[in-house]
């Protein structure tokens, strides 16, 4: 009786081991396939170029650095800024870059550069998150063997334990990129083989990596997108609160800048008025970020409060509801230069 029970249990354990082994193999195969797709992502290609350019800059030549999410690299064109401010600036904003990643990128900058000023774009939607893996999926592939310090800093300090586990399971980590890549191919197939097109949120125009980290776009927000946003249900943000994790990183950015003797500026990039109108009590967000900046003694520029009457940026200055196009970026650059001069005078 005992022998048969032992054999039965042994058999089950062998089956469980085989099951686990097959899952492990599937994990590797799927992970490789997904990781390949992540490497094909167009936005990652632009980010790759941005980091290539950054690492090719001669040491200690940059005096103004921009950090933040797509709001940063769609708002601040270093060429324009340099033209009006006489600086040598660089845009190191990355897709979905949260304050936590901005902090570690800032540290990476300081390994080779000694800027006088750092401009960090704070976006309220990102300030709410405790953690975002997607920003890592955009950042790590483009480091491509360089920036080991940045990578290790992020892995050791920024990742909660559960996120570190997910990070080490490739199918989970790269799934988003694989889905985006495959969907792109699917769209191409339908467009080329069946002449089917989605109603684009982008109008006619071009978008490409221009220089010094800036992404040029001449698109203009389409009427279809305008209408969609206009019909969206409003969100009351009266009780909006930033994530303590991200607030902590904003504080660390300020401390690092202070320790290194670097001027720090916080900016909230403009969004279209139709989009801003979907937020009831936007002032509550503005006040919270402004209070944070005041507490840290950092100058703060909120383009949305300046544009509350819609006179500074018109709809035609946006590539989509939330990002400026190149025409908008030129206006933002001019204004920022004048505002910054006034601040430092």
């Amino acid at each position: 009786m005992q022998l048969s029970s032992f054999i039965s249990n042994f058999r089950k354990i062998v089956i469980i081991a085989l099951f686990a082994y097959l899952i492990f193999q599937a994990n590797i195969r799927i992970g490789e396939r997904y990781a390949y797709a992540a490497a094909q992502n167009r936005i990652n290609v632009w980010s790759q170029q941005r980091f290539d350019d950054f690492y090719n800059m001669p040491p200690n030549t940059l005096d103004l650095i921009f950090l933040g999410s797509s709001h940063s690299y769609c708002t601040f064109d270093p060429e324009k800024i340099d033209e009006v401010m006489g600086t040598n600036s660089f845009q190191l904003g990355m897709p979905l870059q949260h304050p936590d990643a901005s902090y570690f990128t800032f540290r990476e900058v300081l390994r080779t550069q000694s800027p006088d000023t750092v401009v960090v774009t704070l976006s309220w939607s990102l300030l709410q998150d405790d953690f975002s893996m997607q920003q890592i999926d955009h950042l790590f592939p483009v480091l491509d063997g360089r920036g080991e310090g940045l990578r290790n800093d992020i892995l050791e300090n920024m990742f909660p334990l559960n996120q570190r586990v997910k990070f080490n399971i490739a199918p989970i980590r790269f799934q988003h990129a694989f889905f985006a890549y495959t969907n792109n191919r699917l769209m191409t197939y339908f467009r080329e083989e069946h002449d089917l097109r989605i109603i684009l949120d982008f109008g006619e125009g071009r978008e490409y990596y221009r220089s010094r980290g800036y992404i040029f776009a001449s698109y203009i927000m389409t009427p279809a997108e305008y209408e969609r946003i206009e019909n969206s249900p409003p969100r009351n943000v009266r009780n909006w609160r930033p994530s303590p994790v991200q607030v902590n990183y904003v504080e660390r950015i300020a401390q690092l800048a202070y320790d290194e003797g670097i001027s720090l500026v916080f900016v909230t990039a403009p969004v279209s008025n139709v989009y801003l109108a979907t937020y009831i009590n936007y002032e509550a967000i503005h006040n919270q970020v402004r209070n944070l900046a005041e507490r840290l003694d950092v100058p703060y520029l909120d383009f949305n409060m300046l544009n509350i009457d819609g006179q500074m940026f018109l709809d035609e200055h946006f590539r989509d509801a939330r990002h400026l196009n190149d025409n908008g970026a030129q206006i933002a650059g001019n204004f920022f230069a004048a505002w910054y001069r006034a601040q430092t005078r």
């Binding site: 899952i23 599937a26 994990n27 893996m133 997910k166 199918p171 989970i172 799934q175 988003h176």
Partner: peptide, 10 residues
């Protein structure tokens, strides 16, 4: 395998 490959984990 479907959970691993297609699950929403984020």
């Amino acid at each position: 395998v479907l959970i691993l490959a297609l699950g929403v984990f984020y």
